[in-house]
């Protein structure tokens, strides 16, 4: 695995990815179809949608209907990709995704943009801290929270082709760059980014870059930690979690989500069943979101490298 972590954002935004890759994939595969709920402009697909209204279907502001139509299109032989903002891609259409797609075995991919604090200036109404918890409870679902744009380039096509309901949560802007281009990832397999014997940080999405920074800060204090990018939250790479729990004796998760039902819950469930060790978490403490710049919100909700450092030290002390 070739890394490219400097603490800077990936120069290509997730929006750049969606705006170029979704049209490219639609042109390459006539069975692929894309649906949006009046937010094409937000991910750079509006121009394509205007030119190809039969390939990129704008459903209007009706997310439940969009999810149901996607399910029906799957039944008719298409591979649908849907997009809307994270709160609408989870809460607003969850029953339709659950029943019409999941239960009925109509396979769809749902993209929820701007998860957690990355909803920033749209504020608390648009800030999903619970989307992962909801999708985790959907049998057979796959949940991906990519670390950076380079990673998304490598996994998106595989994700869309997977059976079941797939939920992708991604910021429209960039996360901190972690990877060099051209790496190969396997959905369901975590990536070890750094090796250290004292504890393991397991992070996803927006928090992976923060975990890398935290590992540097900890090293300055003489604490050497392992860092895992758990970009697939479901199915969880239980083998890797157990192996690093055994190897390092302490685990701290880091996620841009409520501590209830997300990565921490998944890892804690895994540890309880495999290798119980002290486990801490950096996550939102069961609160609703609020408006503000991302950096302010990360501080406000405790999602900074410094918060990870403190939680690691606290967890190591429990060994």
């Amino acid at each position: 695995m070739k890394l490219n972590y400097t603490g800077s954002p990936d120069p290509r935004t997730f929006k750049d990815f969606f705006g170029t890759e979704i049209p490219r994939m639609l042109d390459a595969d006539p069975n692929l179809i894309y649906l949006d709920a009046d937010l094409m402009s937000c991910i750079g697909t509006a121009k394509y949608g205007k030119a190809h209204p039969d390939r990129a279907i704008n459903c209007g502001i009706a997310e439940g209907n969009m999810a149901g139509i996607a399910a029906g299109l799957a039944a008719a032989g298409f591979t649908p990709i849907c997009h809307t903002f994270g709160p609408f891609a989870s809460r607003r259409c969850f029953d339709q995704v659950f029943m019409s797609a999941g239960y009925a075995h109509n396979d769809i991919t749902m993209i929820g943009t701007d998860p957690g604090v990355t909803a920033a200036m749209n504020g608390g109404t648009h800030m999903p801290f619970e989307d992962v918890a909801m999708y985790r409870a959907l049998p057979g679902a796959t949940i991906v929270d990519p670390a950076d744009t380079a990673q998304l380039y490598s996994i998106f096509a595989d994700l869309v082709k997977r059976p079941g309901v797939k939920y992708l949560r991604a910021n429209r802007k960039s996360n901190d760059r972690v990877y060099e281009d051209g790496n190969t990832f396997e959905i369901g397999k975590g990536v070890v980014l750094r090796e250290g014997p004292d504890a393991t940080i397991i992070a996803a999405g927006y928090m992976v870059g923060k975990a890398m920074k935290a590992a540097e800060l900890l090293a300055e204090k003489g604490i050497q930690v392992s860092v895992i990018d758990m970009f697939t939250i479901k199915p969880l790479d239980a083998e890797l979690v157990a192996a690093y729990a055994k190897k390092t004796g302490a685990v701290v998760t880091a996620e841009n989500h409520n501590r209830i039902g997300g990565l921490y819950s998944a890892v804690a469930e895994c540890l309880a069943a495999t290798c119980p060790v002290p486990a801490g978490c950096v996550a939102v403490e069961d609160e609703f979101g609020e408006v503000g710049p991302v950096d302010y919100l990360a501080e406000r909700f405790g999602l900074t490298p410094e918060h990870i450092v403190a939680e690691v030290e606290k967890t190591i002390a429990r060994k």
Binding site: I33, G64, G68, G72, L73, A75, G77, M99, S100, N106
Partner: peptide, 16 residues
């Protein structure tokens, strides 16, 4: 929920 699924099925059949 059958309404939207029927719409998707009809749209899909038409596009095919």
């Amino acid at each position: 929920q059958g309404t939207s699924q029927a719409v998707g099925m009809a749209l899909g059949d038409k596009l095919k």
